[in-house]
Simulated assay, not measured.
Amino acid sequence: MEVINPQAAGIDIGSRSHWVAVGQTEQDVREFGVYNQDLFGMADWLKERNIKTVAMESTGTYWQNLFAVLISRGFHVILCNGKFTKNIKGKKSDVMDCQWIQKLHTLGLLSSSFLPDEQTEQLCTYCRHRSNLIHSAASTSKKMQKYLRLINLRLDVVVKDICGLTGLLIIRAICDGESDPLKLAALRHGNCRKSEEEIALALQSNDRKDYLFALQQELETYDHLQQKIEQCDVEIEKKLAQIIDSDQDKREHFIDPKPHKRINKNTPKNIDLNLKSYQMFEGTDFLAIEGMSYSTVLALMGEVGFDGIKRFKTAKHFASWLRLAPNNKVSGGKVLSSKIPKGSNRLKIALRNAANAIGNLKESTPLRDFFQRINFRKVRVSAVSATARN
């Protein structure tokens, strides 16, 4: 086969050491550690061997520091998916792995994975950390509901969300030592559908001190997580302002607020995502699309960004990267399979959630009608995937 990259190296990424191959002989392979001085030593050794381009697997998070060092030294780095380098025959070792990667890269058989720009990557870190905090808070909420049930305080029956306005007021009063059902029911918020009498009937405690102690601990954890989420929102706002203020084309756009758009408790309160997203994507109003929520737009900004979307040639390439396009397998003129490939990311999950919300709409819209047609011919799972792809 024709050599495409003659000055190429292959790196097998590890947690304790990295194996580097610049050729197929034993003398062309070296092992380097993972400390900072080892990474710079690897870059110097590659410079001595006149290497121009480097290929490596995206193994966990171990590749990130090495990737940054090699990019700063002027190397062209290819970060490839590990499934494209696992066809080696015979015995498997770190030396053989790095030589196999080097051979594939020399022949031009490896393609680079998508990586966002530095600003979008930093925003992605904040957004993902915020999402993890929300999941932790949801887990803490379930534990509070469990301990309330063990104390025989069936707040979950009379209140839709125990971490809503009414639920948190009652839980805080319980943790402060209040046990009178009537006084607890008097804390009911005006928007609560249940009456004070119904709430009081559900708040007959069995006075278990151990469960009450555990409930107090979980409430403190929940409050701590909410504080961390607010701090994360401040950092996200700073990063969005930095990205938008550095680009004149983004700053000049303005859009009126959407008061009809629902804002739930997990939506950042200090960020006008309607305006920020409109400026980020230079005049594209994603929130005008039915089913799109603030969390979906935030995931879109954090995972790919405006410059990241432009790096895909067509919308079909973008849908394929999201694992939303059918993977047709044809042999002998016969379609063997057309299932969507395995794999997922946070943006795919957000778009599927938006598509599911479109399927629940009562009013007729183009996307909702499309969803119903697919749902009628196939199943809801296929309709969700097809609508998310559109």
Rank of each mutant, 00 (worst) to 15 (best):
M1A: 14
V3M: 07
Q7C: 10
A8Q: 03
H18P: 00
Q24R: 10
E26N: 09
Q27I: 04
E31Y: 00
T59G: 06
G60E: 06
N65K: 14
L70C: 08
I71G: 01
S72K: 15
R73F: 12
R73L: 01
G74I: 11
H76S: 15
I78C: 15
C80E: 08
N81Q: 10
V95D: 06
Q99T: 00
K103L: 13
L123H: 05
Y126K: 02
R128F: 01
L133D: 01
S139K: 14
S141P: 00
K143H: 14
M144K: 10
Y147C: 03
Y147W: 14
Y147S: 02
R149S: 15
R154S: 11
I162G: 08
L165F: 02
L168R: 13
L168S: 10
R172C: 02
R172L: 02
G177K: 04
E178L: 08
S179C: 09
P181T: 01
L182W: 06
L187W: 05
R188Y: 03
L201F: 03
A202F: 01
L203D: 03
Q204R: 12
S205F: 01
D207A: 09
K209L: 13
D210L: 07
L212M: 11
T221E: 10
T221R: 13
D223E: 15
E230A: 14
E235F: 08
K239G: 02
I243F: 05
P257V: 03
K269C: 03
L273M: 10
K276I: 07
Y278C: 05
D285V: 11
D285I: 10
I289F: 13
G291H: 03
G291I: 01
M292T: 04
A299L: 01
L300D: 05
G305M: 07
I309W: 10
K313G: 04
K316I: 01
S320N: 11
L324W: 03
P326F: 09
V330C: 04
G332P: 00
L336C: 02
I340S: 01
P341A: 14
P341M: 14
K348E: 08
I349K: 12
R352Y: 02
N353E: 12
A357G: 06
N360P: 00
L361K: 12
K362D: 13
S364A: 12
Q372P: 00
K378W: 08
K378F: 12
V379K: 12
R380A: 14
R389I: 04
